[in-house]
Design a protein around this nucleic acid. Sequence first.
DNA 1: GGTAAACTTGACATCGTGTCAAGTACAGTC
DNA 2: GACTGTACTTGACACGATGTCAAGTTTACC
Lengths: 195, 195
Amino acid sequence: MSSRNSRKRILDAALDLITRRGEAAASMAEIAGAAGVSRQAVYLHFADRAALMLALVRHADEQRGLEREVRKIREASNAVAALREMVAVHARMNPGIWAAARAVDAVRRTDQAAERSWQDRLKYRLEGCRQLVARLHNEGSLRRGLDSSVAADLLWTLTSLRTWEDLVLERGWSARRYQTHVTALLLAGLTNAGN
Amino acid sequence: MSSRNSRKRILDAALDLITRRGEAAASMAEIAGAAGVSRQAVYLHFADRAALMLALVRHADEQRGLEREVRKIREASNAVAALREMVAVHARMNPGIWAAARAVDAVRRTDQAAERSWQDRLKYRLEGCRQLVARLHNEGSLRRGLDSSVAADLLWTLTSLRTWEDLVLERGWSARRYQTHVTALLLAGLTNAGN
DNA sequence: GGTAAACTTGACATCGTGTCAAGTACAGTC
DNA sequence: GACTGTACTTGACACGATGTCAAGTTTACC
């Protein structure tokens, strides 16, 4: 059963490679080399580059325990606490995810399968945002006069990987700084509490 | 003086091509073909793909009258009005800029010249955000307890092309919806006024 | 008519992706 | 101990894109 082993080794190597160098794209040959398999072996496990990148994101999610983190948000004692937790989860998880996500973002423009999977991911996160906004609404915390779908979209954008990238990678914010001020902005913009 | 003509024709064709198809990247050969010149002629005017893409963004800026729009922000009667105008400018300009900017964003990861130019652009916009925040501060409109540099970074992120992309392209917001709610969020998050 | 700049033509090197075919290593099975 | 299937390797190939080079052509200007 060397199959699963190779597959995992390829994903680990690719994740390591992409995460390590951040921006620069790793070629299939490099990934194969890093995993200690032939270039063709990669194609035995993944149809093409897009498929590998998609598997990579899922792999990164698993390794980081995404589900458990998401559960934490849902299990928060109230809506505002859930919102705080959501930002905290992003502050914790994004450093390990962004490189792989970036790679998919790059490939999705030419690959319809990658694009579909990307959209799925977006919808999934959007759904989480909707639920959180609904909870804010139910608890009377949603800013008066603010449409729920608008609030969900704003929450979704402000907790996106891109916003995180801008603030943390581009502007050099620490995880703590990111968490503090994005939370504050969301509380000020979406809830009644002025924080 | 066919030099400037060809250069302009190439830029026009490239902008048209990239804007039209949005996502998919246009090859040098396609751009040359669309401009009605040989592939090599493109290399006579632009050192490489990155140089072309950079020139493209500047070209798009000029065509859209970026400077005049930016001046409008500075000439607003007060800081809050300037903030409103800033979002309005983005709502107006981004549709014509984003495709070209996207192309540079894609190329900057492998090209240091593109990366530098991209950073210049970011700093320029950030400087505008800093000035606006300083003005808010001077006029006593900046939210109490909010650090100026934090406020500038938040303003910068919320008025970024990426945020615009998320809301308008991904979530299907109209320009008007974008302008209204991003402005409201900024007013709620960065100023004392509750909108 | 001569010259220089802009441009074309066609060839070429390089690199990355993806495919194909033949061979090897190593299970488990009779 | 041969038999077979699966995972994997090796090496070749087609394709498309970028970027370079050299030689020829057009055009405008003097």
